[in-house]
Design a protein around this nucleic acid. Structure first.
Lengths: 396, 396
DNA sequence: CCCATATAGTCCGAGTCGTGAACTAATGTG
DNA sequence: CACATTAGTTCACGACTCGGACTATATGGG
């Protein structure tokens, strides 16, 4: 439990500078060594050495010399699209998904299998997931993309690779990470779906704030349940026990009905998919969308009502966390045309502020893409570790 | 706006290791060099060199050799009580305060002036504060304590040394940092009172979690307004604009009345000091406490009602932030005997959980002590910078 | 065509700082 | 009193980055 940072040694210095240089390339796109030196504060000679390592590691590549105004033309350095790739997987209530992403973040494989997984044998679902993962790994192999690992998005709390709690799927203590690891032979980590969706949105959603990618925001995913992902300083905020951000169980009506979580008046109980559909007298989100498009009174009222409750919860989020934006994702993104106005109005009424309310461009893909991105970003954040692993593999 | 970390150089390596060693002494108390080497992962030779620097900087000192079981006895290293000190100041609604804290965190001077500052000329209050600060600085001087700086706790939002907004004091854009800097000739920073109270509670409150000091918690200070300080990983969480943690304006009743903040049904509007006192039909917290002790029905009901609302807000805090504890401070600490039970019950009802609900031991002193601690902790977190300043001073 | 200018990138000596092993210092044990 | 044991220092070595000199490659003006 003792929090103690590592001693700073020469190797760590180099590791940190490798990450600094690589990160700069990720942020700014193709750059010359000279420009990297200027932007990172390192000297040209240091940058040259660092870049050489990153090129041999297969993370960077030299592009064609770009003509500058005067003087010797710069050789641009860019991320190697074939350097490493990440496998993202997702187990959700009504679908399984797999994505392979390369270093640049581009999706190189994408497959979704829709099927309601509630009530199915856990082992069957896991077997399906592994099959999906193998197909994705096969595709990565065919494209000569070396997978650095896998990350599984799960609709619940993941603790040390074990799925500890999945309220909407009913699974309990499933050792999913081990199962997938054995199935595909990769390092596997588990992470909450809402958190990964937030990260996916940050990395691939294209939202900006003051000209830079969003780094402090809350992502709300309206799936069967209502999930929330809090991103602070570009990283997911997990809280002391890993269950922070559960927006679905914020109290929006102190006098409200009992929720499955044991509380009363939770947002999910008042504005969850089940409630909205019932109030609109339809049975799927597609039907609801069509009804809204057709101007159906009950449907519009149901969505407006949900927006009002959502606004109460988001008011608390805004005052407590002060994010620079809120992103509506999942089914809420689909319903955005009818949902945003009442939500914004409710926020205004309850907190007196008018926040930036954005709509996800990735929708339900955000989580898998975030999962794949997590693997790749781990390499980007610590290229030295990746280099060491390569050396170890070559040696054995 | 570009987020870019510094390049890692030799000086940075040393700075980081100096902080590592000093931090270890802060955490574990008197230790030998050998033990420090073992605990930090540095070699004995490196630790010796680092310790030598810290001793010449006046931050560490050698104590009498402590006899160990066998072998050469270790010379214990401990924080030098005369090394540096921090000046903490506080401007609040009904008092001004000053504290001087030495490196070990022990208060070496403490003075509070009670007086209602609402409606007074800003310049008069600032003059009083500077007078207080000068007395404190004089005392530090008399004790041969070199002040490393000052930090002022303010009941509002501080942005770049300017007091941007103080709802309960009515001040607007007061350049407090500059005024105090000129008054006492020290580096001065401003920080929100609720945040500093949380830090003070963490450093000096003595609360523990799993044997270590609390590092993820929310501090609720019930003064005239209701403030909240969020501490994550040992640091204050400020949000994108610095106004995170305003617990007083979390919505606890969507149908509630208009609040001064522009929202509706805010906690402060429902359970603020004004509301409680009015409902209990008394005019001060002291009267309220006496009434509660006497078993007065109206007083007890008023506190219970406040606890119910507080519980709703804290339920949202718990689900959103997942802290390892909640600390009740300020007047809420005084009212704790009657407040905690209804608050805990309300939390249980609204979120189905039973969190660790702690009571502040510092009460209204938390913020000033946190302010003084902030100055000292800054030196502890970056002793190299302090050393550089000393050298610069000696050279000039 | 040739030379000045400008910019990119490499090379290598110098300086800083942690490592690790040998060494000195100080205590207790048999 | 020798020996084991632990604390702390010394010093040669190596891994870095720095900084300036040097090479490479472009533009532009006479």
């Amino acid at each position: 439990m003792t929090v103690r940072s590592e001693p700073a040694q020469h190797a760590g210095m180099r590791a940190s500078n490798l990450a600094l240089v690589l990160g700069e390339v990720v942020r700014t796109g193709p750059v010359s060594r000279a420009r990297l030196a200027a932007r990172t504060g390192l000297t040209k000679s240091s940058v040259s050495g660092l870049v050489a390592d990153l090129i041999t590691a297969g993370l960077l590549q030299e592009s064609a010399p770009a003509a500058t105004e005067r003087g010797r033309p710069a050789t641009a350095l860019s991320l190697a699209p074939g350097g490493v790739a990440g496998l993202g997987l997702e187990v959700n209530i009504d679908y399984l998904a797999a994505v392979v992403t390369d270093l640049t973040g581009a999706p190189r494989y994408h497959h979704v299998v829709r099927r309601d997984n509630r009530g199915r044998e856990v082992a069957d679902v896991v077997a399906d997931l592994i099959e999906l993962a193998r197909a994705a790994a096969g595709s990565a192999d065919a494209q000569a993309l070396p997978l650095a690992g896998a990350c599984v998005a799960v609709p619940g709390l993941a603790v040390d690779g074990t799925l500890a709690r999945t309220p909407n799927l009913g699974w309990d203590r499933v050792d999913l990470a081990d199962a997938v690891r054995e199935g595909v032979g990769l390092d596997v980590e588990l992470e909450n779906e809402a958190n990964l969706a937030a990260l996916g949105e940050m990395w691939f959603g294209g939202h900006q704030h003051d000209g830079a990618p969003l780094r402090d925001f809350v992502h709300v995913s309206g799936e069967i349940g209502i999930g929330g992902g809090i991103v602070i300083g570009g990283e997911v905020f997990r809280g002391a026990n890993g269950s922070a951000g559960e927006l679905g169980h914020v109290v929006v009506d102190p006098a409200g009905p009992l929720c499955a979580c044991g509380g009363h008046g939770c947002l999910e109980r008042m504005a969850g998919q089940q409630e909205i559909l019932a109030r609109a007298e339809v049975s799927t989100v597609e039907e609801l969308t069509r009804a809204c498009e057709a101007g159906d009174r009950a449907a519009l009222d149901a969505v407006t009502e949900a927006g009002r409750h959502l606004g109460v919860a988001l008011s608390s989020v805004l005052t407590l966390l002060d994010p620079s934006a809120i992103v509506l994702g999942g089914a809420f993104a689909t319903l955005a045309p009818w949902l945003t106005a009442p939500t914004a109005a409710s926020i205004g009424h309850h907190s007196g502020t008018a926040p930036r309310l954005l709509v996800s461009g990735l929708g339900s893909d955000a989580a898998v893409r975030g999962a794949a991105g997590t693997v790749v970003r781990r390499v980007i954040a610590d290229p030295a570790a990746h280099l060491a692993r390569q050396v170890a593999r070559a040696g054995s």
